[in-house]
Amino acid sequence: MKTQISQFTVNKRFPLTISRGTTAQTTNIIVKIKENGIEGWGEASPFGVGNQGQTTEIIIQALNRITPILELYNPWQRQEIEDILNQYQISSAARAAIDMALYDWMGKSIDLPLWKIWGLNINKIVPTSVTIGINSPEGAAKRTQDWLEYMDVKLLKIKLGSKEGIAADQKMLLAVKQTAPNIALFVDANGGWSLADAISMSLWLADLGIQYIEQPLPRGEEQNLATLKKHSPLPIFVDESCFTSADISKLAEYVDGINIKLMKSGGLSEALRMVNTAKAHNLQVMFGCYSDSCLANTAASQLAPLADYLDLDSHLNLIDDPFMGASVENGRILPNNLPGLGVKYSEITT
């Protein structure tokens, strides 16, 4: 099979601030795999979690290293290809792009979308949350109103963990709640709280009817999750603390759910393993994203019927997304009936 690697830059309509910093623009990568006149697409987007940073340059280097070797195989040899990726310790975002492209190729080769190949029911897909980044109370209220005017918002995920402390977090959240009083709210601290602050905030947030807290403690402080679990009246989800299925059993006793992202997991294959492992441990599952375009989020939407929560909104905040795929209906991200991932170039590209 032949491979092609290229880059594209996407810009956010509204820069997103979390506890680790602000993102306004990213340069992502598309991988195309060609065999027998069929072309499969996959995406890699950069992200950083503690010492797990994967920049565009790191991803490109990994892809340039492995793709000449992959050309010795055909897209049906998925097990052999996975062994090669493991052997060369290819970074998870690069793996995700390759894995997506292989699945896209497979679906196109048999003329079926992935969700049908997996036998999934897209009517079970839940609404996606949309994200309000760390901001002033006034800025957060304005961003909330922007989302309400843009689409039929069913859920809001509020990014907390402000460097100004939990008092600033509380003021911002109250501003959002006042702007959208009838919409369910989730909270994601992105590891921005100490244990004491996490306990305090979990009690305060529970009184306001918040549904869960995500990644309250920094990656590397998982040993404190047991204490937090004893004191928190809210369900606890982990994101940065959980990359692959191998992480789940170590966390299962102290959390209620995991956030699966294709760039962390290394693609749809591992994401499916994570779903099954999480369910075996009686954990709930969320699918999330980084600065992914419609390509990667449409790929994630193929597995969306298996998720309890969805946070696939990054492409909705792009002003120059080069792709089109999954649609938004009643707040839900729905894959289409096109074969493979069901992604095409958008009108702005063509």
Rank of each mutant, 00 (worst) to 15 (best):
I5D: 01
S6P: 04
V10G: 02
N11A: 09
N11W: 09
I18S: 00
G21K: 11
T22C: 10
T23E: 07
N28Q: 08
I30N: 00
V31C: 08
G40D: 00
V49T: 13
N51H: 07
N51T: 12
Q52Y: 14
G53T: 15
T55K: 03
I58A: 14
A62G: 12
L63Y: 00
N64C: 13
T67H: 03
I69Y: 08
L72R: 15
W76Q: 15
W76S: 10
Q77M: 14
I84L: 13
I90D: 04
A96R: 02
I98R: 03
M100P: 08
D104C: 09
D104H: 06
K108Y: 10
L120N: 10
L120Q: 05
N121W: 05
I122A: 04
I122D: 04
P127S: 03
S129P: 06
S129A: 13
V130H: 00
S136P: 10
E138V: 14
E138L: 11
G139R: 01
K142I: 12
Q145Y: 14
W147Q: 07
L148H: 10
M151N: 11
K157F: 09
I158G: 08
G165P: 04
I166T: 10
A168I: 05
M172W: 02
Q178S: 15
P181S: 09
I183M: 05
F186W: 05
G192F: 04
A206V: 02
G209F: 03
Y212F: 15
E221F: 13
E222T: 11
P233E: 12
L234R: 08
C242H: 13
F243R: 10
S245W: 06
A246G: 06
D247H: 13
S249F: 05
V255K: 06
D256P: 12
G257H: 05
N259L: 08
L262P: 04
L262D: 07
G266F: 02
G267Q: 10
L268M: 09
S269N: 10
L272N: 03
F287C: 11
S293C: 08
A300K: 03
S301Q: 07
Q302N: 04
P305D: 06
A307D: 06
A307V: 12
L310T: 04
H315S: 15
D321G: 01
D321H: 01
S327C: 10
N330W: 07
V343F: 05
E347W: 12
T350A: 13
